[in-house]
Structures are given as structure tokens and as C-alpha cells.
Amino acid sequence: MGELGVGAFSRSRRSRMLRSPRGAVVTSTASTLVVLGAVVAAFLLAPGSRAVRATYFNVHDMWRAFIGDPHEGFYSVGRGLVVNIEMFTIGEVLILVLALLVALVRQSKSPVLFPLRMIAVAYVDFFRGVPLILVILAIGFGLPALYLPVVSSQSAFVYGVLALVLAYSAYVSEVYRAGLNSVPLSQVASARSLGLRPRTAMRHVVLPQAVRTIIPPLLNDFISLQKDTALVAVLGAVIEANRAAEIYSSTVFNYSGYTVAALLFLLLTIPLARFTDHLIARDRTRRLAGAT
């Protein structure tokens, strides 16, 4: 034993309590209640609490904004959300295709494609750098002002989706590119050594592996896209959830419609966020298991 007495390596009582399963549950519940209580208390005790609650959390107004009333001149925030869902489902499909094309052009090495490569780089730089709201304004009001056939005669909905697709494809193409670069060169070498053409190797060897790794970051971008569909409200003509709330607030002078819109967006994005976490965790487990 030497100079090490009994209990030389014992944990403190407190540390032992925290480490027991029951202790951990008790502790985490207590700390959650304390934090939540403090937040709620601060909200309720704030000098302007009553006014804020009446303006943003009025249950009556929240319900009226949610169902809408055409006779009073305002639209349903709930029905507006359906428009948001339409925008991002159509948008997501188009983004997946356009972003992949941009990424493949940027990854290409053929000298013939050099001009396309330059366009792809400029496109990504531009749309990643310009705030989305400016893109929506430029396309939603700019394209109709050109008086071009077809291009200038679309609905605001189409312009909104187009702006979202252009802006998000720039981001998503970078996600694709990261995925393509994450596939080891040895995979490419072995596909080439089997006599596969570069296009076949890309389609059957590189791309499937790349897509697997980028699903979580891709879903992350789609969570952003879901809520960014609300920005299309600036065009005025697309009555999506945010625009419906805006109309409600300017008609009734109560902001509870925005609260409804916010809650509805959370209802959409939180499940997708949890699903993304689940995929990341699964991927991590699989990779750690594969490493042994």
C-alpha cells in the first residue's frame, strides 16, 4: 500500500451522487425547472409584460389569425403555411438538381468546360454573397419590369421559388462539392483501374458515397430553406404564412398572427432537425463501429 491510505482514490460525495443514474435525473430535472422558472418569471415580471402579452400572445387573436376571415380582409396564417410548404418542396427538388449540376461543372477537368466552370464559380460567389432578401426583391420586381416574353409574365410565387432556388443552389452546390471531395482518391483509382469511364465512375462509385456523407448537412440547409420561404412575403403578392400574419397585424393592430406563424414554422422545422440529429448519430455510430 505504501503511503496511499484507504480512500485515497475515492470520489467526493457530491460527485458520486451526480454520477448515479437517479442522481443525474433528479439533478437535470431540478436545473431545468430553475432555468425555465427564471425565464418565465423575468417575462411575467417585466414592466411591459402585460402589453407584450396582449399584443403577441392574445389567444383570441392567435386563433383568428390562424383560421383567417375573408370578410374582415385578412387571410388564414394556417392556409398560408401550405403555400410555404409548396414553395420549399418544389424548391428542394429543383435545388438538388441545379446544385448537383453546378458542383459537377466545378469538379470537371475538361478544358472544353472551362467557360462553364467560370460561370459556375461566379454564380456561387454571387449568390452566396448577396442577402437572400435582395435576391427575392431583384427577381420578384426586376424580372417583370423587363417586359420579356415568358420571363416577365410569371406569378410572384414562381419568382419567389426561383429566387430561393438560385440562392440555395449556390450553398448546396458547395455541400455537394465537399461530399465529392470526401470520397477517397483510392476509390476513383480503383474505379478507373476497372476500366470504367469517368462518367460511370462518378455515377456509380463517387456520387453514391458522396450523397451518403452529405445528407445531414443537406437537411440542415433545407431546415433553413423551410423558414426562409417566409422572406417571399416581401413580394406582397404571395400569401404565405408570414404575409398572412403581416396582413392580420396591419388590419387588427395585433401581432399575435406572427406568433402563430412562428409556432407553425417551428412545428415544421423541429421534426426535421430531430431527424437530422438522428441521422448524424447513426452515421457516427456506424463510422465508430467501422473503425474497430
Binding site: S186, S193, R212
Partner: peptide, 28 residues
């Protein structure tokens, strides 16, 4: 590419395609 189809190369690190089953690795 036509030349490589007549040569078989095997690498130190196997380089099987991880997303494909063994049979599909071979028949691709």
C-alpha cells in the same frame, strides 16, 4: 480506358466500393 479493361489491378488497401454489396462490386 480500353487498355485498363484488359489489365486487373489490386491495391494494398483493397478499395472495394463500400456502398455496394460484394456481388455488385464484382459485376459493376
Amino acid at each position: 480506358i480500353l487498355v485498363r479493361r484488359q489489365m486487373g489491378m489490386v491495391f494494398q488497401s483493397f478499395n472495394l466500393f463500400p456502398h455496394l454489396r460484394v456481388l455488385r462490386n464484382i459485376t459493376l
